[in-house]
């Protein structure tokens, strides 16, 4: 008991004598975490810029997120960050920039495969089908024949270009069973598109309106038939009654309507063909996009 009291007294004496020194030592220990805090608390540090960039990315403020990521990336290359920059452009539908950013991944990169997939996806969505097909065919995975996703995307994109399709059974075999029927229909359409021949339409227009009816414009066809018929009748009638001036006016009008009927039938058929091609391509795009271009979709924490 005496020893303890003696120690306490001595300590008190020591503290009293050295109070200033002790305060400084204590302050140093108190400031130590502060120095660390300054590093972490620096909102412009790479770590904090990255955190802020991720926050913006999750908030879908991609343009600002890119700025933050790029500031960090400029000092240290980081695959994930580069991928996020490219994805940000992709999500803003800036496909050209997204492609260029995905293109920066080298085969040594751990995210090369994902970036390659995204490049194909970007090209598909920007409707650069031929370029996408060439890139798929040049990729190692395609030549190694070990990526069914790429084959599916490639085949589907061929429906949208003039590329020659493989045999039907081969074309369809790579797809899921539930997709085979619709792809079979697409294949048939592509091989034998239900186009109408503009020349046939023009020939049919010898009988006014028939070419238009052939081009699925039944109302226009009937109008064309009635008008041309009427003016021709009037012209003949005038000639028979020796009313030369009127007769020639009506002859001119019927010739005008008749030639217009032939030309109109020709263009109506072209329009018809363009319309059904547009609808077909739209259906294919919807089909492919519904399946995320057959490629695995990258997921981020906030997705």
């Amino acid at each position: 008991m005496f020893q303890v009291n003696n120690f306490t007294v001595r300590m008190k004496k020591f503290i009293k004598v050295n109070s200033s020194v002790l305060s400084i030592i204590f302050s140093f220990f108190a400031l130590a975490p502060l120095i660390a805090q300054t590093e972490n608390g620096n909102i412009w540090s790479d770590k904090n810029r990255l955190a802020f960039g991720n926050h913006l990315f999750c908030e879908k403020d991609y343009l600002r997120a890119i700025d933050e990521f790029q500031c960090v990336l400029i000092k240290n290359w980081n695959d994930t960050l580069q991928f996020k920059i490219a994805t940000s452009y992709f999500r803003m539908k800036h496909y050209d920039k997204a492609f260029n950013e995905f293109e920066k991944f080298t085969p040594n990169s751990s995210m090369y495969l994902q970036s390659e997939n995204e490049k194909f996806r970007t090209l598909f969505l920007s409707e650069n089908y031929s370029s996408m097909q060439n890139k798929i065919k040049n990729s190692k995975r395609y030549s190694g024949n070990n990526s069914i996703e790429l084959l599916r995307l490639l085949n589907s994109s061929m429906l949208l270009t003039n590329a020659e399709l493989p045999q039907k059974s081969k074309f369809i075999s790579i797809y899921e069973n539930e997709d085979k029927n619709i792809l079979s229909e697409f294949y048939n359409w592509k091989e034998n598109p239900p186009y109408k021949n503009p020349t046939i339409a023009a020939i049919l227009s010898i009988i006014p309106g028939l070419g238009k009816i052939y081009a699925d414009e039944i109302g226009d066809g009937i109008t064309s038939f009635v008008l041309t018929g009427l003016f021709t009748y009037l012209a003949i009638n005038k000639f028979q009654n020796n009313q030369q001036t009127s007769a020639w006016i009506y002859t001119g009008l019927s010739a005008f309507f008749y030639s217009g009927n032939i030309y109109g039938s020709y263009t109506a058929t072209q329009n018809y063909n363009a319309g059904i091609k547009f609808n077909f391509e739209n259906e294919v795009k919807i089909f492919v996009n519904d399946r995320n271009q057959f490629l695995p979709t990258p997921k981020f924490l906030c997705d």
Binding site: S19, S20, S23, I24, F26, L31, G41
Partner: peptide, 27 residues
Amino acid sequence: MSKKIVILFISFSSIFPIKAQKLNNQK
């Protein structure tokens, strides 16, 4: 004793104003 308290107070309080200061600068 009061001198000690002031030094200790400054030491502790200096941790927090730094962050507030940075946020003020940011604002």
